[in-house]
């Protein structure tokens, strides 16, 4: 067991190393002169040269990589080309809204999707099943920002239940935070719910055909208990896996949702960085999200033994 945990943790290193190499090479191997691309169309030769020295682009490639990795390992993600402040500080200033939004989305998604998937599997091939599956296909087909605008048009502009845009920190005004975070979270949750409900249904359908479910029903266990204690627990591993894999989808959605609802988080930082071609910031955000993704999936992998005692390594 301990051996497995150590091996699994060590396996993270090559993955993150390759991500870092990839991010490093992306700028250097992009067609054209990276310094000129970053400087923009109206830059003078002197400005381009300045960016080149700032980024150390005049050194040989392997020296650049070693310097860059060295800084990275010390937690230095570089300096923004625009604001000249440290990228780490910029991210730290913006990360709270994003974390709050992501947490709320995950909670909403799981609370909605798991019962939906269970119901669809329980009432397989009835209208309940078809409704859930239709929602799931629909959730994959509508762009997240269109969903955002539809919600905004109905619930904020039409019914006036929620403020249209904006963000408030939960520490200063929890109710205000909830009020402003509900629409963005629901928007983000749509695709996540579609994904999790689909997997829950598939996994539950498999489990509900097992002998021990029939046994449980035969000895008179209540249907609720059959579904949630006997079946769902056994169906949990694939569901957890998809929640982890879906996290990449969630990050992509955060970038869009934050700009629809005007939330000052990492997503907005990303969009601003793209528009300004602030490559060090984009680079840092990619590394950060890939790191979080790998970490979450590591934790989920390790949690399998807790969820299902039959799994032994």
């Amino acid at each position: 067991m301990l051996g497995y945990i150590i091996r699994r943790i060590l396996a993270v290193i090559p993955v993150m190393l390759i991500v870092a190499i990839f991010v490093f090479l992306m700028l250097r191997l992009s067609p054209g002169d990276p310094a000129a691309i970053l400087a923009g169309d109206s830059a003078t030769a002197a400005q381009i040269e300045k960016i080149r020295t700032e980024l150390g682009l005049n050194d040989p490639l392997h020296i650049q990589f070693i310097t860059w990795m060295g800084q990275l390992l010390q937690g230095d993600l570089g300096t923004s080309l625009i604001s000249k402040t440290g990228v780490v500080d910029m991210i730290a200033n913006r990360i709270n809204p994003t974390i709050n939004l992501a947490l709320m989305t995950i909670i909403i998604s799981v609370l909605l999707a798991v019962p939906m998937g269970v119901a669809a599997a329980w009432r397989h091939r009835t209208w309940v099943d078809y409704l859930v599956m239709s929602f799931s296909v629909l959730g994959f087909s509508i762009p997240v920002f269109v969903i955002g605008y539809i919600f905004m048009a109905i619930f904020a502009l039409g019914l006036g239940w929620f403020p249209v845009q904006g963000y408030r920190a939960p520490t200063e005004d929890f109710f205000g935070f909830l009020l402003r975070a509900i629409l963005p979270s629901l928007t983000l949750a749509t695709i996540y719910v579609a994904l999790i409900a689909r997997m829950t249904r598939a996994s539950m359908l498999e489990v509900l055909g097992e002998d021990y479910i029939r046994t449980a029903r035969a000895k008179g266990v209540k249907e609720n208990s059959v579904l949630f204690r006997h079946a769902l627990r056994n169906a949990a591993v694939p569901i957890m896996t998809i929640i982890g894999i879906g996290f990449a989808l969630l990050i992509g959605g955060v970038v869009v949702t934050e700009s629809v609802f005007n939330i000052p988080g990492i997503g907005r930082l990303t969009v601003d960085a793209i528009l300004a071609r602030d490559y060090p910031v984009i680079q840092a955000i990619i590394l950060l999200t890939a790191g979080i993704y790998v970490l979450i999936n590591l934790l989920i992998d390790l949690s399998y033994t807790l969820l299902d005692p039959r799994i032994r390594y």
Partner: peptide
């Protein structure tokens, strides 16, 4: 595996911006 750990939208954004 490494490529898949980068959210598709962020990777695409970075590539286009370059």
């Amino acid at each position: 595996d490494s490529l898949m750990s980068i959210p598709a939208i962020l990777l695409a954004i970075a590539l286009v911006s370059l």
